[in-house]
Amino acid sequence: MDPLLQKDNVTSYLLQLQEHENKRIALEMHEGAAQNLYSVYTGLQFIEQSLQNESLKKFMNEMIRSMETGIGDIRRLSAELYPISLSTLGLMPAIKQYAVYYTSTFGIVINVKETGDSYILEEGVNLAVFRVCQEALANAAKYADVEELDIVISWQEAAIQVVILDKGRGFLKEKVIAENRAPGLLAMKERIRLIGGECYISSKINEGTEVTVIVPRMK
């Protein structure tokens, strides 16, 4: 077997194992821990309504608010590990749902735009594209210093194209890669390459960063 092909097979297999474990943990968190906490949350609300002592009511209210925060944190972490909506609803709903979580966490508004008529993608393609979006958004939150950014999904006849664009600080890509400070950038390109697509990353200081993903449509 061609050594490069063998390496690709191993890399793809390891990614599948990692994603399978992420999905398992995410489901347990979403359907187990979060649901159990929600049951406790509703119980606390019921108890609060029957309390007469104002001090106890105030204390119970604080506990309820803490429970709300905990449930939200678990659901956000579950979505980070593996968005359940990606399997059930597809790429666009998963990205839109993640955009809501992202904005609530980082305060950065995501403008999600879509052109063309959508079509069904293979699960592996859905996941690879979503992970690239996730990584690009994480980088923007850490380094871009922006208040909003755009995600544009173009459903073309021959391919799907996804562009993540911010107008933030930008960076010198060659310098970052040369200094081995860009594992996330390399991982994005590798994920898309393994599904037969291309990932282009361009950035200019004080002008922003653009990540473009193009994946041919499977016939």
Rank of each mutant, 00 (worst) to 15 (best):
Q156Y: 05
V129Y: 07
I153C: 14
L127P: 00
L137M: 15
Y119N: 11
V146F: 08
K142E: 07
I153D: 01
E135W: 09
I151M: 05
Q161P: 00
R131S: 15
A138T: 13
D145T: 08
V125I: 14
E123L: 12
Q156P: 04
E122M: 09
V152S: 10
Q161M: 13
V152Y: 07
I153M: 12
L137Q: 05
R131Y: 11
L127Y: 11
I160Y: 01
S154V: 07
N139T: 04
G124R: 07
I151N: 05
E135K: 11
A140K: 02
Q161L: 12
L149Q: 03
A136L: 12
V125A: 07
Q134T: 00
Y143L: 03
Q156S: 10
S154H: 06
A128E: 06
S154R: 12
N139D: 10
Q134F: 13
F130Y: 13
Y143D: 00
C133N: 14
V125L: 03
I160H: 00
Y143R: 01
V132A: 07
A159G: 00
N126I: 08
Q156F: 06
E122S: 13
E157I: 08
C133D: 08
Y143T: 00
A159P: 00
E147D: 15
F130I: 11
F130E: 06
G124D: 02
Y143C: 01
Q134C: 02
A128N: 11
A136S: 15
D145Q: 07
Q134W: 05
W155K: 04
A138M: 12
A141Q: 05
R131G: 01
S154I: 05
K142R: 14
A140D: 06
A159V: 02
V129K: 03
I153Q: 02
E147Y: 10
A136W: 06
A159T: 01
N126H: 09
K142I: 06
Q134N: 05
E148Q: 14
I120P: 05
A136G: 15
S154E: 15
A128Y: 09
C133V: 08
I153E: 00
V132C: 12
Q161C: 12
A140G: 09
A138D: 13
I120C: 12
A158H: 09
L149I: 08
A128C: 12
A158E: 14
I153V: 15
C133T: 02
E148Y: 11
E135D: 14
E122H: 11
E148L: 06
A159F: 09
L149S: 04
L137G: 07
E148D: 15
F130W: 06
W155P: 00
E123D: 13
N126R: 13
E123P: 07
A128Q: 08
I153P: 03
A138E: 14
Y143E: 00
W155Q: 01
K142L: 14
D150L: 11
A138N: 10
V125Q: 04
V129M: 10
A144S: 15
V129T: 01
L127S: 12
A140W: 01
C133G: 11
Q161T: 10
G124A: 10
F130K: 04
E122Y: 04
I120F: 11
L149T: 01
L137P: 06
D150H: 14
L149N: 01
A144N: 02
I160L: 08
L121G: 03
Q161G: 04
L121P: 02
N139F: 06
V132D: 09
V125H: 04
